[in-house]
């Protein structure tokens, strides 16, 4: 979606900044905010570039750096950590061939860590884009990643 269409859905008030940034990031299919996006937002809201960029870099779910088509957010809260997150991380890194913070060369996945996802009753958990996955183990991970690769 071009930025202007997304922008016009919201009144031009700074209080809508986070909503707009989410929509631009998720609606673009790019999973990150380009400088063109940020510039359009600044102009639309009549605020400075730094006001937009400062917000975009403060919040961990927003990115101003290119990311893959799917963003994996692995929970590294104390609970998931205790319940096996480090092992899950290793498995994921092997499956994807990238380390945490990196994007697969084919541009399909970006692997990130997240603060508590609030799914502690099914630790270890992760999100891929908007979808949750809990009780993760090696077979489950292989299945899930495989499905995304095929899709």
């Amino acid at each position: 979606m071009v930025p202007t269409q997304t922008l016009r859905k919201h009144p031009p008030l700074q209080e809508n900044l986070l909503l707009i940034l989410h929509e631009l990031q998720n609606g673009s299919g790019r999973n990150y905010l380009t400088e063109e996006d940020l510039q359009a937002v600044a102009e639309y809201l009549n605020i400075t570039r730094a006001a937009v960029y400062g917000v975009a870099t403060y919040y961990s779910m927003l990115s101003v750096k290119p990311r893959g088509r799917h963003v994996i957010r692995l929970c590294k809260s104390p609970v998931c950590d205790m319940m096996g997150a480090p092992g899950v991380t290793r498995i994921l890194e092997e499956l994807l061939g990238v380390a945490v913070g990196e994007t697969t060369p084919d541009g399909v996945f970006t692997l990130e860590e997240s603060a508590c996802l609030g799914r502690c009753d099914s630790a270890v958990s992760m999100m891929i884009d908007g979808q949750y996955y809990g009780a993760l183990d090696a077979p489950a991970l292989a299945r899930i990643i495989g499905r995304f690769r095929r899709g």
Binding site: A50, T57, Y58
Partner: peptide, 17 residues
Amino acid sequence: VLSFSERGIASHIIAGF
């Protein structure tokens, strides 16, 4: 024109992008 970028100990002043 100015803001911070990033957060915590990594935060630093930025102008523009």
